[in-house]
Simulated assay, not measured.
Amino acid sequence: MIRPFETTFAVPLSCEACIKDVSTSLFKLEGINKVTPNLKDQLISVEGTVAPSSIVKAIEATGRDAILRGSGASDNAAVCILETHSTAVPNKVRGLVRMVQVSPAMTLIDLTIRGLSPGSYHATVRETGDISRGAASTGGIWEALKPKQGTPPARGVFGTVEISKGGVGAIFTDKPIQIWEMIGRSIVVSKSQDDRFEKEDPDTLVGVIARSAGVWDNDKTICSCSGKTVWEERKEQVERGMI
């Protein structure tokens, strides 16, 4: 059973009617326990067991954008941007994995993909974070606990992602993993689960797992390095294929 966790989103809010509209849309989702709006800072905090990607879709259904600002507690959240290493693909970003640790031995994984060919894909955590040759240089599947016969798959096996005819797919699952164990490793999404990866395969995705902000840890409105607002950054990310 998934334990409730908290996520915070930046949402354009101008009045109490905006808050009511967003809250009504969110409470239509099964698994939402609490919605806490902050009109002054234009933030929405959500507590429950719903995938962050589903929360974003519910907010977008009201005609507003939403940016995930944090999940879980400090040091308990991670993110992985999935890209193809094929030189034939101009828009390389194809997916995003959000991870939040909700207990000492449980992490939730929210993986969303857009732009792949239809079919079944394997999502796995790899031994290393070396993506210099795409998926081919990431090593084998990470198995912090070696599975025995009749036991669940290795913790490095996130599961199978079904990509629709429209090129979209997602999984929301939990694994007995701690965030710190995965930082610096990589995630591979591919039709092949073995180590025979082709760098020029546009349907093989790879990315390095990095820490992300916990709830309330990230309150920036302007990026210090680029000078852009979070909304300007968001627009660029969407144009690149980020979900």
Score class of each variant (00 low, 15 high):
1 M>R: 11
3 R>D: 08
4 P>H: 08
5 F>Q: 06
7 T>A: 13
16 E>I: 15
22 V>R: 09
22 V>C: 07
22 V>I: 01
29 L>A: 08
30 E>G: 12
33 N>G: 00
34 K>T: 08
40 K>D: 13
41 D>F: 09
42 Q>L: 01
43 L>G: 00
49 T>H: 04
50 V>K: 09
51 A>D: 11
51 A>R: 12
55 I>E: 04
56 V>I: 15
57 K>A: 14
61 A>D: 14
64 R>P: 03
65 D>A: 14
68 L>C: 12
71 S>W: 00
76 N>R: 15
88 A>Y: 10
88 A>H: 13
90 P>L: 09
93 V>E: 06
96 L>H: 09
96 L>G: 00
99 M>E: 01
111 L>N: 10
113 I>K: 05
114 R>W: 06
115 G>P: 01
122 H>D: 10
125 V>F: 01
126 R>F: 02
131 I>K: 00
133 R>M: 13
137 S>F: 04
137 S>D: 09
143 E>M: 13
144 A>E: 12
147 P>M: 12
149 Q>D: 12
150 G>S: 06
151 T>I: 00
151 T>P: 00
152 P>F: 01
153 P>H: 09
154 A>C: 03
164 S>P: 09
166 G>W: 09
169 G>D: 11
170 A>F: 09
172 F>T: 07
177 I>Y: 10
182 M>T: 15
182 M>I: 15
186 S>T: 10
186 S>G: 09
189 V>Y: 03
189 V>K: 07
191 K>R: 15
191 K>V: 08
193 Q>W: 13
194 D>R: 09
197 F>M: 11
199 K>R: 15
202 P>L: 07
203 D>V: 02
203 D>C: 06
204 T>N: 08
205 L>S: 10
208 V>N: 07
209 I>W: 01
211 R>W: 03
213 A>V: 06
215 V>D: 08
218 N>W: 00
218 N>K: 04
219 D>C: 00
219 D>A: 06
221 T>V: 14
225 C>K: 14
226 S>Y: 02
227 G>R: 02
229 T>C: 00
231 W>Q: 09
231 W>K: 10
236 E>L: 11
241 G>T: 08
241 G>A: 02
242 M>L: 12
243 I>E: 06
